[in-house]
Design a binder for these strands. Structure first.
Lengths: 116, 116
DNA sequence: CCGATATTTTGATATATCTGGAAATATGAA
DNA sequence: TTCATATTTCCAGATATATCAAAATATCGG
């Protein structure tokens, strides 16, 4: 994960419609959703949605496959996890205990960083 | 964490200089870094850096405090962790095992989601 | 093939963001 | 005070992004 890939990914998520699309796809998982299903769910005109799907795809956040006339989009789980790791990479230098999600679950941040 | 707060945060990270600044601050931890130190480290003109620091701060990603003539900026660890949780929230609906960072550390994604 | 459906590409306009010089503000030292 | 340092705010031009109507492309059923 280079800085410029991360900038692109964050940029793709930095827009209301795209973030909504992405979150739907995260929830849908590998099965994904058709462009039409997303357009209907979010009430977005087809060209606008298509533009945003292309942005997300260009950033590598989602994948595309065809199923008959429909194009199915699905989240790229690996990149999602890479991005998460990138955000907290080397957090707090020598004192990783300062970076915990909650005081309670100390192992989370630690293993998250390792996974990058 | 609302969608529009997340859009703002991702937007703040979606720029080369800002992402570089943010990552330096993540590494620096609560101690933070002065505007001057960041400007020198990244070789960015003061007005440009100031603009980007204001963006990051407006998004809630970093905090500001004064130390004599210097302004010290530091990462907001809580928001960092909230963002991380937001990214993977409800991932893969009913089958959270599909969302793991690596096949090995199954507990990571699970507790990360709980922490949101 | 032909018509219907699903989706993308084109293109023009509107809006937002990035950049850095010059000027302004804040703090501390002499 | 007065001067030097640290940093921000103002501004204007340059660049990038968002929107969606209209036209083009892809796939399927008959």
């Amino acid at each position: 994960m280079t800085d410029s890939l991360a900038v692109r990914a964050f940029g793709a998520l930095a827009q209301d419609t795209r973030l909504a699309v992405y979150r739907r796809l995260v929830e849908a998982g590998p099965a994904g959703l058709s462009a039409g299903a997303i357009a209907e769910a979010l009430d977005v005109p087809a060209p606008t949605l298509s533009f945003h799907l292309a942005q997300l795809r260009g950033a590598g956040l989602i994948t595309q496959r065809r199923d008959s006339r429909s194009l199915i989009y699905a989240v790229d789980v690996a990149l999602m996890n890479t991005l998460i790791g990138f955000l907290s990479d080397r957090c707090c230098g020598g004192q990783p205990d300062l970076c915990l999600p909650t005081p309670k679950s100390a192992s989370d941040a630690r293993s998250r960083r390792k996974a990058v």
